[in-house]
Design a protein around this nucleic acid. Structure first.
Lengths: 205, 205, 205, 205
DNA sequence: AATGAATGAGGGTTCATTCAT
DNA sequence: TATGAATGAACCCTCATTCAT
């Protein structure tokens, strides 16, 4: 083993690697179980068992069930946003192409991470978590709508705050419904419908 | 109590009236507590205490907490539909006036029964229940959209099932948000925005 | 059953009587177990089992283990003081007879309630509870010593606060030691020694 | 680390020194934490962390938390006795000067090692330990009192075993109380009061 | 029909201790 | 010798539900 290799090793060290492993296993077990039974239908002991570790190990990695839930959801949200940013890079902000690219990425993400979506927005429209996630999304939508309206590119009688709530609900609900069973509609049909119902794309009037 | 009074009571079937009374008190107590603390934040004992009855009495009227919750929500839904029917009677089915009348009634209902709305749709933990209510609403919307599309009065690329999910989400979310604090927007602003986002009123594409 | 009897019954009602019973059983079980194993050596489940009730019943009667401990100790302290008051009534305050009567009553109490004493001051010199009890006793002793000193009836170089701590320690320790095995000394020997070591009876110096 | 440095280390037997070091660090960390939070308020992991070692290391040096506690207390007791012996050397055994010298040394020790005193005698949860320490002290006191009585230099009605318990309690309680906040009395006031209350110095009677 | 004390399974959480590295 | 992640038994406490009165 070279000195360089030894250094790398010591940075994460054997136990550290094991720790990260355990953490990942717990996260995966949690996503699967939460998607299936919801936050209140799952115990920390069940998550631990499914991850193949002891009950107490759960608390070595997460303060409690809520914290785990939270972490999963916001990590997913961050990943989604990053993907959407990459997908829409180069498009003119607010253009139909920009919105379409981001919507398509949303649906692609929902298809790829079905369990995650079902967990956060599906059965767990529970948990106050969905609320929190929605509240993390709403302000951006609302600001966007306000700008559109100011530019006269959205209907004058559209109330930005109301429309932002409505749109956030549309997005979270539709992806949850679709992720639960993607055979219900093709991705393209979902995208097309979402674009139709996007308040920022409504004909000004 | 005089003999006469006792007789009057027995004519009205005292126990029966008392039973209905107790039941109503339990329902009212439950709505208030659920709106405030959510399904999981309230115990059956708390509901009983607030209703002024003993713990065990709860189970003489409801199978369990879920059943009570269920009953409240579907009674509310039934009442709303009846009100909407009354409000839109005489309007041509599917006309803009028809939709507007029903939407206005929805908002009026939300204003009048804020606690109820917050309980069912606000506190997200209501979990399965909000889902259930939504699923009770969705098929009607979906059939409606299918008819509109068949008549060429809705965009061709609107997928009825997707749009129905979306619209149900819009309605439940917006009234929950608004009922939590009606000063956020005027009733008319909410109505206008809901009409704009109603998929059955979108300009045919 | 006469009307009078019925009224009495309704005041405590059958379940109420049962409740008081359960509470007493729990208190008795707790005293015995705490005396044997100390606060930290006993679980609420053990107390409940020994009282012949279910685990959860414990929490119908006491907020938690600490609260129960607290209640036992302070009820005992209150009872002791009342007995001492009764025993010394008519004696001149601060006279040797007054002090002797109260000391004798203390020892009689320790003999009668051995488990209680062992629980609070013996093995459980644990718990912070003994501290609390001592702090409930110390101020009275201290004020007393200050008065004696002011009257020139106690040694001039006796520091009241120090002596009060010392005396409280003497009392609590000696009765705990003696209650654990009363064959170690006769009650009269204990009383005589306590009187000798009572700072308020030391020859003024 | 340079080769030279490594060599120096190995000359001093680096691991050996390190072991003693680790042990000392653990002891110091334990005293500080126990004084602050008590036996039950501190975990072995916390002690290890404060000592700057890994959790498992704790068990390479001590069988368990109790053993550590034990060792600290008895090492302190041994040190105190040695100091008292040095302080009273040359004084006539049992003379007032002898007792005064030893008492002064006790107070000086309490002032110097406040954390230690608070840990062992202050936090009452120290439970079994304070008892044990007291029992280690009592026989000496008791033998002493027996001799004094036999020589007619102590009150005839003083029961040696009772008085020994009482005196041990006085000493441990007073130094704990004073160590917790030495501004409560001057060292000389504490010494004077302890001398007044020392059963071996009571006027024979 | 109402009462409310009792039940007891089960959840979340802690932590002394072990052991592979 | 030291590490520190993992263990898992045990604890405290809650609360939906029952049942004797």
């Amino acid at each position: 083993m070279s000195v360089a290799e030894a250094d790398v090793r010591s940075l994460e060290s054997a136990p550290a690697r094991s720790r990260a492993d355990t953490r990942r296993r717990l996260l995966e077990a949690a996503v699967a179980l939460f998607a299936e039974k919801g936050l209140h239908g799952v115990t920390s002991a069940q998550i631990a068992r499914r991850a193949g570790v002891a009950t107490g190990t759960f608390y070595l990695h997460f303060a409690d069930k809520e914290a785990l839930f939270h972490e999963i959801a916001f990590a997913a949200l961050a990943e989604l946003r990053e993907r959407q940013d990459r997908a829409s890079v180069g498009q003119k902000l607010g253009s139909r192409e920009y919105v379409r690219a981001r919507t398509e990425e949303l649906i692609a993400f929902a298809a790829k991470k079905r369990e995650l979506i079902v967990m956060v927005f599906g059965r767990a429209e529970s948990a106050g978590l969905a609320d929190e996630v929605r509240e993390a999304v709403v302000p951006g939508i609302q600001r966007w709508l306000e700008r559109r309206k100011a530019e006269g590119r959205a209907p004058a009688d559209l109330h930005p705050a109301v429309a932002a709530q409505a749109h956030a609900a549309v997005l979270t609900r539709v992806i949850a419904w679709w992720a639960a069973d993607p055979s219900r509609a093709t991705a393209e049909q979902v995208v097309a419908t979402l674009l139709r119902m996007n308040p920022s794309l409504l004909p000004a009037g």
